[in-house]
Amino acid sequence: MIVIYGIKENLNPIKAKLSDVIHQSMQATLGMPEDKRIHRFIPMDKSDFYYPGGRSDNYTVIEINMMEGRQIETKKALIKSIFQNIENSLNISPVDIEITIKEQPKHCWGFRGITGDEVKDLKYEVNV
């Protein structure tokens, strides 16, 4: 699951394109299938969204929640791919993007009535 935060006036107009760009990186780097897009957008009032100096109102936070198992180099490649694709497709500078990967053990995920360590039919690899 991916959660994206930003100032609503800037985030709302680009939500669909940003979702496409992020998912393209997930597919290319992690091998995620097209139908595994789980994105949640949190458009915020500017008065509720504090961010570091040197950033513009395009500042966007992307939290990627995933089961543990990916190699460090794979996660770094994903982060760099997202930075590059956002800059190329949406003209938002990497300085205005913050990406955090949050990993949890497979047994801490629940979907389709089972836990992640019990699933046997994923259409993608976790240990990449």
Rank of each mutant, 00 (worst) to 15 (best):
D96P: 11
F49G: 10
I22V: 14
Y51D: 06
E98K: 04
L90A: 09
S56K: 10
H39Y: 13
Q84H: 14
N85L: 01
G69V: 02
I82N: 00
M44P: 04
I42T: 12
E87A: 05
R70Q: 06
S93N: 15
D35I: 06
E103S: 08
P105S: 12
F83P: 01
D96W: 09
T29H: 02
I86F: 01
R37C: 08
Q84A: 08
I62E: 01
F83L: 07
K106L: 15
G69Y: 07
E98C: 03
T100F: 14
R112E: 11
T74L: 07
R112W: 05
M66E: 05
S56D: 11
E87T: 09
E98G: 11
I99P: 12
D96H: 10
T60S: 13
A28D: 14
K80H: 11
G31I: 03
I92N: 07
M66T: 00
T100C: 14
K76W: 05
P94R: 09
R55I: 10
I101L: 09
S89I: 00
I64M: 04
N58E: 12
L30H: 00
E34D: 10
F83W: 09
P43K: 10
H107S: 05
V95F: 06
P33V: 00
I42Y: 15
N85V: 01
L90S: 08
I101A: 06
I101K: 04
N88G: 03
